[in-house]
Deep mutational scan, measured.
Amino acid sequence: AVSDRLIGRKGVVMEAISPQNSALVKVDGETWRATSGTVLDVGEEVSVKAIEGVKLVVEKLE
């Protein structure tokens, strides 16, 4: 799938994300809905860990 190429890519949080709420991230110039197990604020850099349906699963870039 096209989205599989995004695993391992870096992105930027466009809307705050919490474990209860998905929000938008920008990866390679494209906007995607994403979820995370932690709270992520706007502007934080993230890494794509997986794809669940049409959502990216991201975590904060260390």
Rank of each mutant, 00 (worst) to 15 (best):
54 V>E: 15
34 A>N: 05
4 D>Q: 12
45 E>C: 15
15 E>I: 07
7 I>N: 02
55 K>G: 09
5 R>D: 08
24 L>T: 08
60 K>W: 04
47 S>C: 15
10 K>Q: 08
27 V>S: 01
10 K>R: 13
4 D>S: 12
21 N>D: 08
15 E>W: 05
28 D>Q: 04
42 V>P: 08
17 I>D: 13
52 E>V: 12
11 G>E: 03
49 K>I: 15
62 E>N: 12
35 T>V: 13
52 E>F: 09
21 N>E: 09
42 V>A: 07
54 V>Q: 14
44 E>N: 09
18 S>T: 13
3 S>W: 07
30 E>I: 08
53 G>A: 03
52 E>H: 10
57 V>K: 04
21 N>H: 12
58 V>R: 00
6 L>N: 03
5 R>W: 08
25 V>S: 02
22 S>Q: 10
23 A>W: 15
20 Q>I: 09
25 V>K: 02
3 S>V: 09
31 T>C: 15
3 S>D: 08
32 W>M: 09
19 P>D: 13
4 D>C: 14
39 V>P: 14
3 S>I: 11
51 I>N: 03
30 E>Q: 09
37 G>S: 14
57 V>S: 03
10 K>L: 10
50 A>M: 06
6 L>A: 03
37 G>I: 13
13 V>Y: 03
34 A>W: 00
12 V>F: 06
45 E>L: 14
38 T>V: 11
53 G>V: 03
10 K>F: 08
35 T>Y: 07
19 P>W: 08
57 V>P: 03
36 S>D: 06
61 L>N: 07
22 S>V: 12
31 T>V: 14
48 V>A: 01
28 D>R: 00
8 G>V: 02
52 E>T: 08
54 V>I: 12
46 V>D: 01
62 E>F: 11
25 V>L: 00
40 L>V: 06
58 V>E: 02
62 E>S: 12
18 S>G: 14
38 T>M: 10
48 V>G: 01
14 M>W: 03
1 A>G: 12
18 S>H: 09
48 V>N: 02
17 I>C: 15
32 W>F: 14
29 G>W: 02
18 S>W: 11
3 S>K: 10
7 I>K: 04
38 T>R: 06
18 S>L: 08
54 V>C: 15
35 T>A: 07
13 V>P: 01
5 R>K: 10
18 S>Q: 08
20 Q>A: 11
9 R>A: 08
49 K>Q: 08
55 K>P: 00
31 T>R: 07
52 E>N: 11
26 K>C: 15
14 M>D: 03
36 S>A: 10
10 K>A: 07
33 R>A: 15
33 R>Q: 15
54 V>R: 12
56 L>C: 01
44 E>L: 07
24 L>Q: 05
58 V>S: 02
25 V>E: 03
45 E>R: 09
43 G>F: 04
58 V>F: 00
18 S>A: 08
56 L>F: 00
11 G>T: 01
59 E>H: 04
38 T>F: 08
50 A>N: 06
62 E>K: 12
40 L>N: 01
32 W>V: 10
51 I>D: 02
2 V>C: 12
6 L>Q: 03
4 D>G: 09
42 V>L: 06
25 V>G: 01
17 I>G: 15
1 A>Q: 12
50 A>R: 10
21 N>Q: 11
31 T>A: 09
10 K>W: 08
42 V>S: 04
54 V>G: 15
8 G>M: 00
39 V>L: 11
46 V>P: 01
15 E>K: 06
58 V>A: 02
34 A>L: 00
62 E>H: 11
29 G>I: 00
39 V>N: 12
7 I>A: 03
38 T>K: 07
31 T>Q: 11
29 G>R: 01
41 D>I: 14
2 V>Y: 09
33 R>E: 15
39 V>D: 12
17 I>F: 13
18 S>C: 11
45 E>N: 08
32 W>A: 09
17 I>Q: 14
49 K>W: 00
13 V>L: 08
40 L>A: 03
37 G>N: 14
49 K>L: 13
15 E>D: 06
30 E>A: 05
45 E>D: 06
6 L>D: 01
62 E>V: 13
33 R>Y: 15
30 E>F: 07
12 V>W: 04
13 V>G: 01
30 E>H: 07
26 K>E: 11
53 G>K: 04
33 R>N: 13
13 V>Q: 01
47 S>E: 14
1 A>S: 12
13 V>H: 01
12 V>R: 07
26 K>T: 09
27 V>M: 03
13 V>S: 02
27 V>N: 01
6 L>C: 06
43 G>I: 01
14 M>Q: 06
39 V>W: 14
26 K>Y: 13
42 V>N: 02
10 K>E: 05
57 V>I: 12
51 I>G: 01
29 G>N: 09
20 Q>T: 13
12 V>K: 06
25 V>C: 03
23 A>R: 02
17 I>E: 15
57 V>R: 06
55 K>W: 15
41 D>M: 14
8 G>D: 04
60 K>P: 10
12 V>A: 03
25 V>D: 03
13 V>C: 04
10 K>C: 13
16 A>T: 11
45 E>V: 13
54 V>P: 09
41 D>A: 14
46 V>G: 01
60 K>N: 04
26 K>F: 13
35 T>Q: 07
1 A>K: 12
53 G>L: 04
27 V>P: 01
13 V>W: 02
59 E>L: 00
30 E>D: 08
39 V>I: 11
34 A>Y: 05
7 I>H: 03
9 R>L: 11
48 V>R: 01
37 G>V: 13
37 G>Y: 12
51 I>Q: 04
16 A>H: 08
45 E>Y: 12
38 T>G: 10
5 R>T: 08
33 R>S: 14
53 G>R: 01
38 T>N: 09
33 R>T: 14
45 E>T: 11
5 R>P: 05
50 A>F: 07
55 K>N: 14
54 V>W: 11
45 E>W: 15
44 E>V: 10
27 V>I: 13
24 L>P: 04
35 T>K: 07
41 D>P: 06
17 I>V: 11
1 A>W: 11
33 R>K: 11
31 T>G: 06
13 V>K: 01
27 V>E: 00
37 G>T: 14
11 G>W: 00
31 T>Y: 15
28 D>L: 07
44 E>C: 12
27 V>D: 00
56 L>A: 03
36 S>E: 06
4 D>Y: 00
1 A>E: 10
38 T>L: 07
30 E>W: 05
20 Q>E: 12
11 G>S: 02
34 A>T: 08
53 G>P: 02
47 S>D: 04
56 L>V: 05
5 R>M: 08
20 Q>Y: 10
62 E>L: 12
41 D>T: 14
11 G>D: 02
50 A>P: 01
4 D>V: 10
21 N>C: 13
45 E>Q: 11
62 E>C: 13
40 L>C: 05
25 V>Y: 00
34 A>I: 04
26 K>Q: 11
2 V>M: 12
52 E>S: 10
16 A>S: 10
59 E>K: 04
19 P>F: 10
37 G>Q: 13
19 P>M: 10
11 G>A: 07
26 K>S: 11
57 V>N: 02
27 V>Y: 00
28 D>G: 07
49 K>N: 05
3 S>M: 14
32 W>C: 10
4 D>K: 11
11 G>F: 00
55 K>C: 15
60 K>H: 06
32 W>L: 10
9 R>S: 07
56 L>G: 02
59 E>G: 06
57 V>D: 03
14 M>P: 02
56 L>R: 02
5 R>V: 07
57 V>L: 08
50 A>S: 09
40 L>P: 02
11 G>M: 02
9 R>N: 05
51 I>C: 05
58 V>N: 02
29 G>C: 11
55 K>Q: 14
40 L>G: 02
42 V>T: 05
52 E>P: 01
48 V>Q: 01
20 Q>F: 11
33 R>H: 15
56 L>W: 00
3 S>Q: 09
19 P>G: 14
62 E>I: 12
24 L>I: 10
59 E>W: 00
27 V>G: 01
35 T>F: 06
47 S>Y: 15
10 K>G: 04
2 V>G: 10
12 V>D: 03
4 D>F: 00
29 G>Y: 03
18 S>N: 10
6 L>M: 08
56 L>Y: 00
60 K>A: 07
20 Q>P: 14
19 P>A: 12
46 V>Y: 00
44 E>Y: 06
10 K>Y: 07
41 D>H: 15
32 W>P: 09
5 R>I: 07
38 T>I: 08
57 V>M: 04
61 L>T: 09
21 N>G: 14
55 K>E: 13
61 L>H: 07
1 A>M: 12
27 V>W: 02
22 S>F: 09
42 V>H: 04
2 V>E: 09
41 D>R: 14
52 E>C: 13
44 E>F: 06
16 A>I: 15
35 T>C: 13
43 G>D: 04
48 V>L: 01
40 L>F: 05
41 D>K: 14
35 T>I: 14
44 E>K: 02
42 V>F: 05
